[in-house]
Amino acid sequence: MATMKSVQTGGVGRIEVVDVERPVPGPKDVLLRIRAGGICGTDVTFLHMGGMPARAHLGGELVPLALGHEPAGEVVEAGAEVMGLKVGDRVVVNPQDAPTGIIGCGGRYGALSEYLLIENAQVGRSVAVFPDTVPFEVAALNEPMAVSRHAVNRSQAAPDDKVVVFGAGPIGLGAAIWLKLRGVGHVVVADVIPARLEKALAVGADAVLNSAEEDVTARLTELHGQSANALGQPRPGTDVFIDAAGAPAVFNTVVANARWHARLVMVAVQKKGEIDLGGMLRSELTLVASQGYPTEIFEVTPELVEHHERFARLISHRVPFADVHRAFELALTPGAAEKVVVTFDA
């Protein structure tokens, strides 16, 4: 029996690298050799939990969870019935298309493994092929950038809109890139970490705002002009707010600064907090939730390929699989890293 190494949860705040059976592809499957895989905030959440409940709705005990849902790899075996894929193709993956459960999020397989089985492999549905001009670690951004793209699509931001993105992590910075590629005229990125704000400017934001040190209202008014809410009270002229931070303070800040008919797109996982419904009423603020990537998973791939050098700036750490414990230590330490990508030897 051939084996491979795979990363799974090993209790609260810990991972384990285990030897598991290497999957054997059936006639409709392909086997990938993973070459790079990102670590997501969802992976960190699973580690904080210590695994996944065996029967979540019944509060079952935690069981180990295979981690990783942001892979890029190359086809090493292809079943006889697979169409449009061949050995050597470089692909990114739709983790939600696996019939045995979402890859790395409770499904049978995790992508932080040496090999990954793609069941019922189909180009444009379960995988997309990308050229060798794009490094594997940049291609591994395909999944999180689809999350960002969905948030921007949900915002319906137009070229003459003025937008602020709260949170300069990978999702927020990705949103800033997509907004500029969409032709949006003015994009501000707000965060509390100066290095992240520098990166926001590097990827194309028009301005940045340190919300820990600056008066948000004054700065947005300076950048976007003055408008008003439904009662005529002065507000910045910001049209669209995107919350990629998930902190209650962000939601409150948006409500306090929303002009009449502003829109707030909520893409970050929200923390519990009180909501000023009266403030939302006074601005007729539209709240739009953004979850995952219903259609965007491969919509983003051609532009990721075209602008791969720009997206590469989002990666803060490239860590070899042999040192995967350090990769997760970085991801688990607040402020230590922005986007960690684990790389696998060729």
Rank of each mutant, 00 (worst) to 15 (best):
residue 1 M to F: 03
residue 1 M to C: 03
residue 5 K to W: 02
residue 7 V to Y: 00
residue 7 V to Q: 06
residue 9 T to D: 05
residue 12 V to T: 15
residue 12 V to Y: 01
residue 12 V to A: 09
residue 14 R to L: 07
residue 14 R to Q: 14
residue 18 V to E: 04
residue 18 V to P: 01
residue 26 G to Y: 04
residue 27 P to A: 13
residue 28 K to H: 12
residue 28 K to E: 11
residue 30 V to F: 08
residue 31 L to S: 07
residue 37 G to A: 15
residue 38 G to Y: 07
residue 38 G to I: 10
residue 40 C to D: 02
residue 42 T to I: 01
residue 48 H to F: 00
residue 49 M to A: 12
residue 49 M to W: 14
residue 50 G to H: 10
residue 61 E to A: 11
residue 67 L to Y: 03
residue 68 G to V: 08
residue 68 G to K: 08
residue 70 E to D: 01
residue 70 E to Q: 08
residue 70 E to R: 09
residue 71 P to G: 07
residue 77 E to A: 15
residue 78 A to P: 11
residue 80 A to R: 15
residue 81 E to R: 12
residue 85 L to G: 04
residue 90 R to H: 13
residue 92 V to Q: 03
residue 94 N to K: 13
residue 97 D to P: 00
residue 99 P to I: 09
residue 101 G to H: 01
residue 103 I to M: 11
residue 103 I to Q: 09
residue 104 G to S: 10
residue 106 G to F: 00
residue 106 G to T: 06
residue 107 G to A: 07
residue 116 L to M: 02
residue 117 L to V: 11
residue 123 V to A: 01
residue 124 G to S: 02
residue 128 A to R: 06
residue 132 D to R: 12
residue 137 E to P: 01
residue 141 L to Y: 08
residue 143 E to V: 11
residue 143 E to P: 00
residue 145 M to E: 13
residue 146 A to D: 07
residue 146 A to Q: 05
residue 148 S to D: 02
residue 150 H to D: 04
residue 153 N to A: 11
residue 155 S to R: 09
residue 157 A to C: 13
residue 157 A to K: 13
residue 158 A to V: 12
residue 166 F to P: 04
residue 167 G to Y: 09
residue 168 A to R: 10
residue 170 P to A: 14
residue 170 P to C: 04
residue 175 A to C: 15
residue 177 I to E: 02
residue 178 W to C: 02
residue 182 R to Y: 13
residue 190 A to S: 15
residue 193 I to W: 08
residue 193 I to D: 11
residue 195 A to D: 12
residue 196 R to D: 00
residue 199 K to I: 15
residue 202 A to G: 06
residue 202 A to M: 11
residue 209 L to F: 12
residue 211 S to P: 00
residue 211 S to H: 07
residue 212 A to E: 13
residue 213 E to S: 10
residue 220 L to S: 02
residue 221 T to S: 12
residue 223 L to C: 00
residue 224 H to M: 13
residue 230 A to W: 02
residue 238 T to H: 01
residue 239 D to T: 06
residue 241 F to C: 01
residue 242 I to C: 05
residue 243 D to M: 04
residue 243 D to S: 05
residue 244 A to F: 10
residue 246 G to H: 11
residue 246 G to I: 11
residue 247 A to K: 05
residue 248 P to F: 04
residue 254 V to K: 03
residue 255 V to R: 04
residue 260 W to I: 01
residue 262 A to W: 01
residue 268 A to R: 00
residue 271 K to E: 14
residue 271 K to I: 00
residue 272 K to Y: 08
residue 275 I to K: 02
residue 276 D to C: 05
residue 279 G to F: 05
residue 283 S to K: 06
residue 286 T to A: 14
residue 286 T to Q: 14
residue 289 A to Y: 08
residue 290 S to K: 03
residue 290 S to V: 04
residue 295 T to K: 14
residue 295 T to Q: 13
residue 296 E to Q: 13
residue 297 I to T: 15
residue 302 P to A: 10
residue 303 E to Q: 14
residue 304 L to I: 15
residue 306 E to Q: 12
residue 307 H to F: 10
residue 313 R to N: 05
residue 313 R to M: 11
residue 315 I to C: 08
residue 316 S to T: 15
residue 323 D to M: 10
residue 325 H to M: 04
residue 327 A to Y: 02
residue 327 A to C: 09
residue 328 F to M: 04
residue 335 G to E: 03
residue 335 G to K: 01
residue 336 A to I: 02
residue 338 E to Q: 10
residue 339 K to F: 10
residue 341 V to H: 09
residue 345 D to H: 12
